[in-house]
Write a protein that binds this DNA or RNA. Structure first.
Lengths: 205, 205
DNA sequence: GTATAATACGAACGGTCGTGCTATTATTGT
DNA sequence: ACAATAATAGCACGACCGTTCGTATTATAC
């Protein structure tokens, strides 16, 4: 007897993963607020109610999308970076992985969900904003932590302001995202790479 | 006979202005895509159909909102800056007016429409994206022009890269917007002010 | 003072939204 | 093989979406 599992409906866990993967793509181009259950169901190939049953309400669906997006970022950027030896190598790795993450059009065709979600939600209090806020703060703290370690092991000067360093790096990422995606600026990548080098060199021991 | 003009419906031009003013506020918090005609009509205090008659369709309404937002920015930031004498004073004025513009919660309670619109529309081709793209390119060109003039009159070094200068300044603005609005970061204003000073000093003659 | 044009309203349209309820189907444990 | 359980579909709901249309009101022009 042939294994029908492949063409049969997927088990819950797998289905949920499939739904969320597709939802991330939509969120990436339409924004986290631009998702509708009908559209998502159509794309996944199941009924609205069938899909809806996996999430008790829409907020929950959106929250799970953000959770998955966050996990995706951590896996693609932060973890690889923190596997590098502490100090400058780790900071450089973080930057490079981040850039690669932003340039990866296959899994996130519309750019970073968190970048757009941040600007969508900044004036809309609620669970979603809370989550984004928390994730972003986490990210920034980790950046600052990496900078502090680089100071400790004398890769960066002790006068280095880690808040300033993290804020600038984050600003450059936003600027890159904007210039690349909205303005199609041909030099976007060169600009951010130079700015990063400059930022590092200005604080190098 | 008393003059009923005051409590009578406003004349077209005035009404449209009233509508767009209110629409800008909504767009500022809900995003340019988050506007609905019903909600807007309610806020303005007129019927959906009555309001709709001023715009042949919704795209047009959104476009006019962006147009007005653009005009608002030009009037509040660019024009005052370009009234200052060319060179550094003009660049400093531009920065200061920009910051004041972003901090003005009364007219734009939800932050700059263009900032959020940029991230909303970057993957949604159409008239709206085209307009934002054009406006932003204009803004950047004007920034670069101001930098070039500062180079010409020897306020800034001839080695100054005006593309880089404009891109960094814009990135800082995005970073500020994000840290202030989404993360409530207490140092946001200090960070951008320092970064701006640093950017100027690095290129000062 | 009347004709005309501008302006706004109310009601209704076909769609889609998020969300329940119920029945059916598929998977699992025995 | 069969009962128990989980997953999905079908259908309907009220609300709101953008949009159209006919009508009433108001301002302007003659």
């Amino acid at each position: 007897m042939v294994n029908l599992a492949i063409i049969r409906p997927l088990r819950a866990q797998t289905t949920k993963k499939t739904i969320l993967d597709e939802a991330m793509k939509i969120a990436s181009t339409h924004g986290i607020q631009g998702i509708t259950i009908g559209e998502l169901a159509k794309k996944v190939g199941m009924s609205k109610s069938g899909l809806f049953a996996h999430f008790e309400n829409k907020d929950n669906l959106q929250l799970e999308i953000l959770r998955m997006a966050s996990e995706h970022f951590v896996e693609s950027v932060m973890k690889p970076a923190f596997r590098e030896e502490k100090g400058l190598p780790r900071i450089v790795a973080m930057f490079n992985h981040w850039l690669a993450f932003l340039n990866d059009h296959s899994t996130l065709p519309g750019g970073s969900i968190f970048v757009s979600a941040s600007f969508e939600l900044d004036d809309r209090p609620g669970v979603l904003k809370d989550f984004v806020q928390k994730s972003q703060n986490d990210l920034i703290l980790n950046m600052e932590k990496a900078v502090q370690l680089a100071i400790d092991c004398k890769h960066l000067k002790s006068s280095t302001n880690k808040n300033d360093f993290a804020w600038k790096l984050y600003s450059y990422v936003l600027g890159y995202h904007h210039f690349k995606r909205m303005l199609n600026h041909p030099e976007a990548e060169e600009l951010i790479k130079n700015a990063f080098k400059e930022l590092v060199n200005a604080n190098r021991f």
